[in-house]
Write a protein that binds this DNA or RNA. Structure first.
Lengths: 223, 223
DNA sequence: GCAAAAGTGTTCCTTTTACACCCATGC
DNA sequence: GCATGGGTGTAAAAGGAACACTTTTGC
């Protein structure tokens, strides 16, 4: 009846040059010492599950998340070779994965990995990650996504690239823009981005409208 | 770190005359002795979460479920007045709620309650139930529902009533039938139902097509 | 001037919605 | 014959999908 309870997080980050990434830590203790795993750890006696995830993320990776939601609870006997451990998994979203330096690490190492070039993972963490990617994909169709992953200002193409990364396929530019703009959650800035090719208009999320829409739910079928 | 882990189930049943119902048990021990609660209990050391739910359901209510999925894990410190307990909640669907006699009860009493006439519930079970109803509602839009709740043969109006019960609003008869039939998962039987008014054609689910559709996912926006 | 990415509308088609009258049976 | 629930189709509107050329910049 008394079972060890862990809380683990699948932390997604996004940067245009690198695409969708996941934050992993290298274990410095057995079991699976030296292998990569999701950040997380045991829940303290008087600590909420969310607080445990946030604490572990801080200790192991130094990141602060912009959004977090519970994903699923993995509880098969045998998923930890030592003893019975159930893990409550969370999905978290972080801005600026590329820029952030992982500070004060409690784990041997912590790094961002592109979702399509992941190392082997400890425990059943590969399974957790698969479910997290499905959740993220599903979220797109009933909630807007982007505020929690993109910077303050971004060209519209960044948003589309993010959607394409999550969905794993390409999207028609005109239709996507038409639909997304119709949500009314993007403010067009007068500023332009520099870079290769024609400069792009920058956008920012209108946080109030974004949150309102998130609570109400949307139906945004993407082509 | 070692925390008590419980598994609880929100069991839904449906019968035309009674509508959508939830199975509750009356607690025979403290805390909340005498109050109504979701069936469930502590998970054994070497038992999967699903097995624990099924065992508790069998012991406390005698029902056998047709479908079960994990809902959410409730883990706030203080949700159990005695000690730290986290509860992994499941949603289960059962056929023939009305006919079934609750046998061999381990709980003081077990009864079906219409979802709109629930008693006060122990612990945070009211919150769990609210989330379960939301999940059921959401499921309608991406998966068909009915096979797990209705009998082998049923008039089409039963299916519509079920959907109306879950959604909490009325649906246009012609449009609903058109959409649902287009899924191709219902077989029309030659048999007719008796009863008041014009006899109704009976239908049954085509289980193969139903399961295929369930796995693939549907988009069934109901008016 | 050319390579690179940004920006922009229209047409067709499918899906959704709204809506009302007749039918078969039991009493 | 009347009350009760079952059964059926169409037209108008909205939303989704497909699709290509021009513009602005850096080099």
């Amino acid at each position: 009846m008394a079972i060890d309870v862990a809380a683990d997080a699948v932390v997604f980050g996004y940067e245009v040059r690198r695409g969708l990434e996941v934050l992993l830590v290298q274990r410095r203790i057995e079991p699976f010492r030296g292998e990569w795993a999701l950040p997380g750890g045991f829940v303290y006696e008087q600590e909420s599950l969310e607080a445990a995830v946030e604490r572990e993320l801080r200790e192991e990776t130094g990141v602060q998340v912009n959004y977090m939601e519970q994903l699923y609870t993995f509880g098969e006997p045998g998923r930890d070779p030592r003893k019975r451990v159930i893990s409550v998994a969370y999905v978290a979203l972080v801005k600026q994965s590329g820029h952030r330096v992982l500070a004060d690490s409690d784990a041997a190492d912590a790094r961002w990995f592109p979702v399509d070039a992941l190392p082997a993972l400890a425990f059943d963490h590969a399974q957790i990650l698969t479910k997290a990617r499905e959740r993220l994909r599903a979220k797109l169709s009933y909630e807007p996504l982007g505020l929690e992953l993109l910077g303050e200002k971004f060209p519209f193409s960044d948003l589309q690239n993010l959607y394409e990364s999550v969905l794993g396929r390409s999207i028609d530019r005109r239709n996507f823009k038409k639909k997304f703009m119709a949500l009314g959650i993007l403010d067009e800035l007068s500023e332009k981005s520099s870079g290769l090719g024609r400069p792009a208009t920058l956008f920012s999320f209108n946080k109030k409208k974004y949150q309102a829409l998130k609570e109400k739910g949307i139906v945004l079928e993407i082509i």
